[in-house]
Design a protein around this nucleic acid. Structure first.
Length: 918
RNA sequence: GGGCGAUUAGCUCAGGGGUAGAGCGCCACGUUGACAUCGUGGAGGUCGGUGGUUCGAAACCACCAUCGCCCACCA
């Protein structure tokens, strides 16, 4: 083995072997453990969020696999309609073409080409992360089987009246020229204006002032509304306005939507371009006059010069016109929510179109009940509130998109406006008994990407066939995802799963936090703060990192700033940390749901941890080389052996407990602490006494060697789900030494928690305490670590005597003692450390500085009297003694006595030292 | 306008009615045959504020402050 841990040397070969051997293939049997991967966008790359999420899923999957449960981590990718189409369109634009130049079929072919070249990147990245997915089951949301499921589900929902086609206002992205669901629209505060227009009454008696943030929509106004109780305007209700520019007569109506306190209390009503106005229009049976084309220009039948103008240009012209008419009252600055498409960033228009909708009410009910009744549990629990909040206020889901890339809607139209839904044209003709000469045309639109994603947990398992996988793995065990897609995805999977697969899609939803940069900023290309998980694994030179962060920016002018920040933060680039260190870091950061600042110091620490494990293993392998394990004595073994086994057991118990509650951070902590502070710091050091002792009786040595190897083996298995590569590399060597026929840790048994050995733990605590006392004196008295010191033990009881006798060699070695002697009374000239009743003394003779020791004792004394005061205070409080639980009071009494005794002993010691200092 | 979360050591974060924890950083000493990506010792905190509940509060409750996020149709 190399002296230092070198991740690159070991990672890739193991993964290839694992995959080839089929260790990750879906298991079979009852009660499987299953996670479906949230399918990443097929044309994207994995970012830190994915890597974090994948680490969590892989760790859980590997853990259950080792526990012998039939296991499946189902992989796959998503066609990501809009996102993917945009990427390919951008490529085309680079060639000076648009998708319309190619036509639908050629364009879709081109996207498929791109999918094929790009999809492999994600698979490669997942492999680098060590993801133990079953590659043989890899799926794509638009592959043949899943497309069929999508189509069948659509048909069934339609047949049951849960999907319908309707003309109403939708969120329209005029750049992408498609409808969007409510969720795909993000509203942010932006500064704008509130224009006050005067609308003259038809009879010319007066004007009414309306305020608007959308002047151009006035071309489509069909009413002015006031509040029914508003005394200022009550007498005008029913009269008409002569709408400027267009000259249309529109009524003044009363509707209690209007807030009399806001603005003038008069609202212009444009039913075709505003969601509220649309509803008012419905209530008052108003015309819906559309004034915009699908790319947000003014329609041609509007008056000159407005017809054909872009919406923002039209806005200016409308304002100018009102001004020239003397009807512009004033312009106020105004902050408003501007709705933008989450992909294009363009301002979304409420737009009157025919679209397909899912009637979600009937689907939502059982989905709400499933969470209420605990058949699905959110972890952390409070996310269920977010879920309920949304589910109880659901609008019908607009599922049609005017795109080319996606699942084509299985609906056909005849020339008379009839709509037929079916598997294909032939099916439709048969189902509806349509004659061959009736011309049918398929709907041009595709489905919202999330429609197919909603089916993912059962479509990937083979539904509607009753496959073995469906039986073993559905409902899946846990969904691991971010809170940002609870609405987009989680809620819809629950609705669809219950509707079609007949049960909840997963029993638990583990919601993890968002990975942010070291300053708490969201990572994004435009901020230039993105970290690529692969760069943390392999390392990257500064120049390459700068290059990566500054090319392909949407706003190239940000490049210098990004470059500067990058050079400042990573003056030497990023070193190679390896996959295991990255994974362990993610696990350690996986606390309950809160956002995570990713800090390089952390990953460096865990890289060091890998190295520590590596070297401890190196020691164990070296020191046990050539030892005949078979002659190990049958007894329970020496104290260090009994102790480390006891600690191992407790560590495994703790890890089991924490994995069960998805606290990967606490599991990681337990493993880290056991590995470093118990196995390395104590067991390895203690084992040296035996393993390096040439004169040691062979059975004793063999026993120690066996314990060292077996403990290490169990430790490696425990760490394997979190750090698969380094543990595999070492674990196979250890297994070989133990003569275990084991090809991999992937399917090795998870370590069993045995029983703990409290006697061994108590003895060990004593040993650690005594060694600690000596080291403390050594450290604070500046005694060179290499210099052996004599130690006298005073006030020893029988138990101490027994322990000294049994453990003297270990004690001497670890504390580096020159001698160890039990004495009746300690000499006055010594430095002292107390451990329980025991008084450890290091005689002065040339070693101890009297004044230093005096200061040290004073400090200790100070601390002890503070502690004593605290406990004494409690005990002198009558109501504490009276009301606190007996055990607490007893503990407090014990403590007080201990402090008292310590205090007295320190005082007398101090007195002696002070006498010497004089 | 509703809802949620955060505030603990210099930094990043666990914890949780009974003596304040970890990693990193910091200080001192140290190349003993696993490891300087290391070892030993050490310093460092009124647990955001104010009230309340309690024998006891950093923890539970109320209010406040600051920061962050989500949802919502005010022209």
């Amino acid at each position: 083995m190399h002296k230092t841990y070198e991740p690159q040397a070991i990672e890739e070969t193991h993964y290839k072997r694992w995959e080839a051997a089929g260790y990750f293939a879906a298991g079979s049997g009852d009660d499987g453990f299953c996670i479906v991967i949230p399918p990443p966008n097929v044309t994207g790359t994995l970012h830190m969020g994915h890597a974090f999420q994948d680490t969590i899923m892989d760790t859980l999957t590997r853990y259950h696999r080792m526990r012998g449960v039939p296991t499946l981590w189902q992989p796959g990718t998503d066609h990501a309609g809009i996102a993917t189409q945009m990427v390919v369109e951008r490529q085309l634009n680079g060639e000076g073409k648009t998708r319309h130049d190619l036509g639908r079929d050629a364009f879709v072919d081109r996207v498929w080409d791109w999918k094929r070249t790009s999809g492999g990147r994600i698979s490669d990245q997942l492999r680098r992360l060590g993801a133990s997915v079953d590659w043989s089951r890899d799926r794509f949301t638009m592959d043949e089987g899943l497309s069929e499921v999508v189509r069948d589900v659509f048909i069934r929902l339609h047949d049951e009246g849960l999907i319908y086609r309707g003309k109403r206002l939708v969120n329209w992205d005029p750049v992408l020229r498609t409808a969007l669901s409510d969720l795909e629209v993000l509203s942010e505060d932006e500064s704008g204006h509130l224009w006050h227009f005067q609308y003259p009454l038809t009879d010319g008696s007066r004007t009414l002032t309306v305020a608007t943030t959308r002047p151009e929509t006035m071309l489509g106004d069909t009413a002015v509304a006031v509040h029914p109780d508003d005394e200022r305007y009550q007498h005008l209700i029913g009269q008409t306005i002569k709408l400027p520019i267009v000259g249309r007569e529109i009524p003044i109506i009363a509707d209690d939507y209007v807030d009399p306190e806001f603005g003038t209390g008069c609202v212009k009503i444009t039913p075709a371009h505003d969601f509220n106005d649309y509803e008012i229009g419905q209530r008052h049976d108003l015309d819906q006059i559309n004034v915009l084309t699908d790319d947000a220009h003014i329609v041609s039948d509007m008056p000159e010069p407005f017809a054909g103008l872009d919406r923002f240009e039209a806005r200016k012209r409308v304002v100018q016109t009102f001004e020239s008419l003397g009807l512009l009252e004033r312009i106020d600055d105004h902050t408003l929510k501007v709705p933008r498409g989450d992909r294009s960033g363009s301002v979304v228009e409420p737009y009157l179109t025919d679209q397909w909708y899912v009637r979600v009410g009937p689907l939502a009910e059982p989905a709400i009940a499933a969470v209420e009744e605990g058949r699905i549990r959110f972890v952390p629990e409070n996310w269920s509130k977010t879920y309920f909040n949304w589910m109880n206020n659901l609008q019908d889901w607009c599922i049609s998109r005017q795109l080319w890339w996606g699942h084509r809607i299985p609906a056909w139209y005849d020339d008379a406006g009839g709509i037929y839904v079916g598997r294909d044209e032939a099916d439709v003709r048969q189902k509806h008994a349509l004659a061959d000469d009736v011309a049918l045309r398929q709907d041009d639109d595709v489905l919202d990407t999330w429609f197919s994603s909603a089916l993912w947990p059962f479509s990937t398992l083979g539904w509607p066939e009753q496959t073995a996988e469906l039986k073993t793995f559905y409902p899946t065990t846990v969904l691991v995802t971010g809170f940002d897609i609870i609405f987009f995805w989680v809620a819809r999977m629950i609705m669809m799963g219950m509707k079609f697969a007949g049960d909840v899609p997963f029993r638990e939803v583990y919601i993890h936090g968002l990975i942010r940069d070291q300053d708490g900023q969201k990572m994004s290309k435009s901020k230039g703060n993105v970290l690529d998980p692969i760069d943390l694994i392999d390392g990257i030179e500064l120049e390459d990192l700068v290059e990566k962060r500054t090319t392909g920016l949407m706003q190239p002018h940000l490049a210098p700033k990004i470059e500067k920040a990058t050079r400042r933060q990573f003056p030497d680039g990023i070193p190679e940390y390896g996959t295991d260190a990255l994974r362990f870091t993610f696990a350690s950061l996986a606390t309950n749901g809160r956002d995570i600042r990713f800090d390089l110091g952390r990953i460096e620490g865990y890289r060091n941890f890998c190295n520590k494990l590596w070297n401890a293993s190196r020691f164990v392998l070296q020191a046990t080389e050539g030892v005949d394990l078979d002659i190990a004595e049958a007894s329970a073994g020496s104290l260090p052996e009994r102790w480390i086994q006891s600690r191992l057991t407790q560590m495994v118990t703790e890890v089991d407990r924490q994995f069960a509650r998805y606290r990967l951070d606490l599991a990681a902590q337990a493993m880290y602490e056991f590995t470093w502070y118990e196995f390395c710091d104590w067991f390895v050091e203690l084992a040296k006494s035996t393993l390096y002792d040439d004169s040691a009786a062979s059975p004793t040595k063999a026993s120690m060697a066996r314990t060292a190897l077996e403990t290490l083996d169990a430790l490696l298995r425990a760490l394997h789900p979190t750090m698969p590569f380094v543990t595999e590399e070492i674990g196979l060597k250890v297994a070989e030494r133990l003569s275990l026929s084991r090809e991999t840790l992937c399917t090795a048994p998870w370590p069993e928690a045995g029983t703990s050995d409290s006697e061994a733990e108590q003895d060990m605590t004593w040993l650690q305490g005594v060694i600690g006392g000596v080291r403390q004196i050594r450290g604070e008295m500046d005694i060179a670590p290499g210099k052996p010191v004599p130690v006298l033990l005073a006030d020893a009881n029988d138990e101490d005597g027994r322990r000294v006798e049994a453990l003297e060699p270990l004690l001497s070695r670890l504390a580096n003692l020159e001698s160890l002697e039990l004495v009746a009374t300690s000499p006055e000239a010594c430095a002292v450390a107390l451990h329980d009743n025991l008084k450890l003394c290091v005689p002065m003779a040339g070693l101890i500085d009297v004044e230093k020791e005096r200061d040290r004792l004073r400090k200790l004394l100070d601390k002890t009297s503070q502690d004593l005061a605290k406990t004494a205070g409690k005990l002198s409080n009558a109501s504490f003694v009276e009301r606190a639980p007996e055990a607490v009071v007893a503990e407090e009494r014990r403590r007080a006595a201990e402090h008292q005794s310590t205090l007295e002993r320190l005082e007398s010691q101090l007195a002696e030292i002070e006498a010497l200092a004089r």
